[in-house]
């Protein structure tokens, strides 16, 4: 084992260099005075200033954040229900179909989800009049549909590894099932709900393809604006935007990571 350590460390270093090199290059060039990627024109924060004045981009970002927050909240509720059904109820009619329907969106190409939902929305509008037109509502429904699958996976694994004796004790002592759920089950699976919410939020915030299909004229999300500006050519404003996103995400992930790590360490320390 010992002799192979240098090889393994080299593999990891190369792998992480591949993963982080492009992101670091974006951050470095977001502070570049020059518009050209190959030329270093000196340190400057002017692209951040320009980004803050781009009202189209800011408007789209605000819409995306609202869509993502709504999506994440609905997806957590639906995903938790699906996870409860799959973990707690061993046998029920429709179990097989539910299993397939919660795993398929994880891998289903986005172009198929986008097109098929658009066709459904158009058909629903002509037959029952809802949803009237396409925009924020249709994007939220579409995003919830694939995001809830991810929430289900996260919550499912937490539920499966949960100690049932606390719930049983509470029921034996006469607590009502609903009360048991809210005072015992929910707090225990809360970390998974938070993780699922954050995952659903980022998935929604990041989606270009599905939103492009199901959105209407009035609703342009952040990825749609970023995509059209990338198609027009490299713009240093996008570098600045990327740096801001990377900064927010790293801080959030680092905090949760540290919390998890400390929890894990405490757990291992407590064991004899």
């Amino acid at each position: 084992m010992k002799q192979r350590m240098p090889l393994l460390i080299t593999i990891l270093l190369l792998g992480y260099a591949f993963l982080y090199g492009p992101i670091i290059s974006l951050i470095v060039y977001s502070f570049n005075e020059s518009r050209l990627v190959t030329v270093w024109g000196g340190f400057s924060t002017k692209w951040y200033a320009e980004l803050m004045q781009n009202s189209q981009l800011l408007g789209a970002a605000w819409l995306s954040v609202r869509v993502a927050a709504l999506t994440a909240t609905i997806a957590v509720v639906l995903g938790t229900l699906a996870a409860l059904a799959l973990v707690r109820f061993r046998r029920f009619r429709g179990r097989g179909s539910l299993e397939v329907m919660v795993t398929a969106p994880l891998v289903m190409p986005e172009v198929i989800i986008g097109l098929s939902l658009l066709l459904l929305f158009v058909a629903m509008e002509t037959t029952i009049g809802w949803p009237a037109g396409r925009g924020m509502t249709t994007i939220v429904i579409a995003h919830t549909t694939f995001a809830m699958a991810y929430v289900t996976v996260v919550v499912q694994s937490r539920l499966a590894h949960m100690d049932m004796s606390l719930e049983e004790a509470a029921l034996d002592l006469g607590a009502r099932p609903l009360k048991v759920f809210f005072t015992i089950t929910l707090p225990i699976i809360a970390p998974a709900l938070v993780a699922g919410w954050l995952l659903a939020f980022t998935l929604s915030l990041d989606d270009l393809v599905v939103a492009s299909f199901v959105s209407g004229p009035g609703a342009t999300t952040l990825p749609m604006v970023v995509y059209s500006s990338i198609r027009l050519g490299v713009s240093p404003e996008i570098n600045a935007l990327a740096t801001i996103i990377v900064a927010i995400v790293s801080v959030a992930v680092l905090i949760t990571g540290l919390l998890l790590w400390r929890q894990e360490k405490r757990k291992t320390e407590r064991l004899p």
Binding site: Y16, L19, Y20, G21, P22, I23, S25, L26, Y29, L36, V37, T38, T202, L205, D206, L208, P223, V226, Y227, I230, V234, I238, L241, A242, I245, V246, V249, S250, A252, V253
Partner: peptide, 26 residues
């Protein structure tokens, strides 16, 4: 560290490669 890049925007990660791979790129 493996998952972290996955949480940043997919589009922006592809955009980063345009800057690296293009003719007068990095």
């Amino acid at each position: 560290l493996i998952i972290l890049p996955f949480w940043t925007s997919f589009l922006i990660r592809i955009y980063a490669w345009i800057g690296i791979l293009k003719g007068n790129g990095l």
